[in-house]
Design a protein around this nucleic acid. Sequence first.
DNA 1: ATTAGTTTTGGTCAATGTGACTTTAACTAA
DNA 2: TTAGTTAAAGTCACATTGACCAAAACTAAT
Lengths: 239, 239
Amino acid sequence: MKTVYANSANVAERRLAPPSLAISTVIFALRPSERSGRPTLWLPLVRRIREPFKDMWALPGGPLQHDESLQDAASRNLRETTGLSPEYLEQLYAFGGLHRSPNQRVVSIVYWALVQPTEAALADESENVRWFRADKLAELAFDHNAIVDYALWRLRNKMAYGSIAYHFLGEFFTLAQVREVYEAVLDRQLDPANFRRQIKGTPEIEETGEYLQGGKHRPPRLYRFTGTPGLGPDNRSTP
Amino acid sequence: MKTVYANSANVAERRLAPPSLAISTVIFALRPSERSGRPTLWLPLVRRIREPFKDMWALPGGPLQHDESLQDAASRNLRETTGLSPEYLEQLYAFGGLHRSPNQRVVSIVYWALVQPTEAALADESENVRWFRADKLAELAFDHNAIVDYALWRLRNKMAYGSIAYHFLGEFFTLAQVREVYEAVLDRQLDPANFRRQIKGTPEIEETGEYLQGGKHRPPRLYRFTGTPGLGPDNRSTP
DNA sequence: ATTAGTTTTGGTCAATGTGACTTTAACTAA
DNA sequence: TTAGTTAAAGTCACATTGACCAAAACTAAT
């Protein structure tokens, strides 16, 4: 009884079945590029172990359980597949096209997350979970390429306005590190002096008395982010 | 069989039932205020004719049908309840809190729409469909007050950035009319001269050779909007 | 110890955009 | 003709931004 809809592949039954609801997440983290060493955008994908799209890579996701909110569901399956607990998690979009999945109507509510590199480094990686560069993805299952594209677009957009870059970083950071985040995501060079001026103009960034030692140059001051994650109806604040 | 879930009010069955999926829409239009005559924001609501929240006002909405996309579903139930076909329709958010509806887990994918005043004037109004001022709403069914608040926030936000105001207007309009839209939505006065300067700076606004006659003052030039609606993964373009 | 190399940090300058405000143009109504 | 209205153009001070320059503070090499 419980699974009669899920297994019904024929058209007559499909018309009766309500669309099934899934939660997926696009998880972004910065990792040093193999070659240049500069940070670049990466995201974890999972290999599908059943049809449809068996053996192709897909976004982590799963069904919504009855006792969890949408955000909790995103958080959970993110933790289950990758072991990560994100610094930032926000709803991206609800995808509900008619032909997203071949034998079943599926509506996916997709979240996007930012995780810090320390976390990302610990993330489980296995035969069926692997990290990929966000700008060099193969063909993914379902409409997941389009979803990642949209997530990237939103990320870049938010980066330009809101104060979101800090969720890629740890508690303390230098202004150069913040700039590297911007450069990685927006994919262009920024003037260090002008960038510094802008960042220092935002009240959510706080100087600490500490300096980062160990570079072969003048030691940069460490800063701290004091703002809130916020957006969305659940947790609103900035554009 | 088809309705066994929908009617199951007891907890045991509820745990088995998948969350049901609904589509709702927040529809904004500008109508002249009764008193001042200046345009103000209004939206249509429907009276609930059954439990839960019987006799309270709610957003137009309904279930998703098997052969329609999310946007089509929003468009359809907007047309069915109010007779309107919107100039602008975009996904707002998916609301999926656990206790949005008392006896059933409901996930609502909400759209928001802008309609032109000519359309809005024709809109069906009846015992069970009525227009209300967006800033003076009573207590609505479900979490619909919060949804409207969020839609208002998004509307104001988009107004400040993108070129969205024109979807409230007809094909030809004066710059003063555009300013009235901004003033109504943002709820503050704007300097006519500076506003004109900004609007004329946007390339999507095109001068026509026509002028609006009939005012008791210098006749203003008419303009035309040449941009695209666009946003969202389905139809993307501007921030 | 001195020098070269690096990045941080503070600064200037011109161009651009914005808010507050003034003035003139073009119409209607009395 | 004149008063009243809004349209439309322009001025000025101020803030923001991009391009660029230079000093400061460290390390590494000579």
